[in-house]
Design a protein around this nucleic acid. Sequence first.
DNA 1: ATGGTAGAGGTTCTA
Length: 300
Amino acid sequence: MVLSVKITRRTPRRAFALYVAVFSCSANPDAQWLMPMRLVTWNINSLRLRLPRLDDLVAALAPDIICLQETKVPDPLFPEEAVRALGFEHLHYKGMKSYNGVAILSRHPITPVENLPGWYGKEDCRHVGAVISTPSGPVELHDFYVPAGGDIPDPDTNPKFAHKLAFVEEVTEWFAGRKPERAILVGDLNIAPLEHDVWSHKQLLKIVSHTPPETERLNRWLETGFVDAMRHFVPPQEKLYTWWSYRNRDWQKSNRGRRLDHVWVTPDLVPNLSGMTVVREARDWVSPSDHVPVVVDFQF
DNA sequence: ATGGTAGAGGTTCTA
């Protein structure tokens, strides 16, 4: 139901009071006069190569904020003009040559969160944060790219796996000490925590991204004060993937996917959630990323 | 049991 009252100079005081009362009851997420905010997270796997795909994404979905991972571009070479031309004037990014790199693109002003830890002493461009202002107050947004961890799930023989486990432990400690409120955390976390976040739980238990040491650590990170916003919309017994390897001839036919990309919110923002979409069709775009965008809609 | 593909930037690494 849509209620609207046109306010004019002649509107009687009582009608104005009614309008104010109706407006201020709109904490209901169905209310249409709240400000919608559409957020996308996407491991783009090279921002410069896939700028045309970013254009497609913006044209199709009109997001307000886009969080990217694996931009693979050093800061001085970031394609600011091209991104501004898509309507995103407010940028906060951290990149390096060849690897990693994260970026927050926003249509509306944002305030970067400064002095975030470099993690594992590496400063390898895996985390940026920014504060968004909304009609109901500021919201803190974190964009992460967790190390993939190599092939062998043994921290003693594989330093990349040791890095991954330690990275998740460090960020967990940091969030535990911070007790986040009105926060959103997104990114390629490179871990598929639930049985139905992978195509075969049994076959992947010893495969990096779904091993118990990883999924246990990801759960501890989540439990520092977040809710899994994707699983808020899709029950845990339903398969849900965001990544399909390039190494499958026919990704749709084999459908050996994993849910490596995540959107978490603090419980105080759960009432603001209004929808979630995994943009599966993006896996079939020309020159696709191996990850697809995840869209989350809020009403603030 | 194995290898399959993609991106960056070089003659190999990371995913």
